[in-house]
Nucleic acid binder design. Structure first.
Lengths: 139, 139
DNA sequence: TTTCTAAAGGAGAATTATTATCTTTGCGGA
DNA sequence: TCCGCAAAGATAATAATTCTCCTTTAGAAA
């Protein structure tokens, strides 16, 4: 089962493996497109009608805190979540409010090269992420 | 006076020049470090005690909509505003939650060059902005 | 300058997303 | 299997923002 790894991760970090946590993690994976808490709640409520809203928020926080999920914010106001933990960039569509992951090691390399040569004075860089806004072409 | 340009801009866009709008714009300029609505409200209330909270939000929205201010998002929850309209990147400090503007035409050039050669399939890029997280070194 | 009217502002209620509190439940070690 | 504490449930509270409704005012026109 695909969430076996997730269960392992929970144990490793000393967190209890609960059906709620597994369900929410699976929801984020399943929903893919960077769901909001609301999206997750809606999805969850169909399968596990008795998981409460507060619990969803609490679990999302816990998982973000322990680096099992990522938090992303969009131009609008709400927080969104992502199960892809690998460092990556984001493509935003302003119109449809869609977010897609974007990964490009070559670009990362170019940028990190650049900042190796040219430091920002008074600032120590930990991470760089690109927000690429534009629009998705419908194929 | 420095807000002369702002008044001109309002007129040009068919917006009325009101003392509230001028005051709020000046507050954002004055406060510099990407103030939140709350920061602005606090600042404003000292000078113009009778500008109401709802008005501040309404005016911020209007000005963002007409590109007289920018909205900046961070991983935390609140929106922040910026009077610097020139395209630029942001430096974020995770610890102190500070944001600084970062401008680097050379870097922009490198990145836009890169994407001229290597398109993202299914996506039309309109704008790229970097979020550089890390920490400010105290001089 | 005065008048007129749509646009803008004021006050505070309403909404929305999120967090906190407090009680109950159940995971997982002994 | 039992027990203790972490976690879940229910719901109240909070915070940021938006909405509603009514009043005021900027600025165009007379």
């Amino acid at each position: 089962m695909m969430s076996e790894y997730f269960r392992e991760q929970l144990k490793e970090k000393g967190l209890k493996v609960t059906p709620q946590r597994v369900a929410i993690y699976e929801a984020v994976v399943e929903l893919k497109n960077h769901p909001t808490a609301e999206n997750i709640i809606e999805y969850i409520s169909k399968i596990h009608p008795n998981i409460s809203v507060g619990t969803v928020y609490k679990i999302l926080d816990t998982l973000v805190e322990h680096h099992l999920l990522n938090k992303v914010k969009n131009e609008k106001d709400v927080m969104r979540y992502d199960a892809v933990m690998k460092k990556h960039h984001h493509l935003y569509c302003e119109e449809t409010d869609k977010i897609a992951d974007f990964d490009d090691p070559e670009l990362d390399h170019i940028i990190s090269d650049y900042f190796t040569k040219k430091k920002i004075k008074g600032f120590k860089i930990k991470d760089i992420s690109l927000q690429i806004t534009g629009e998705f072409k419908n194929k």
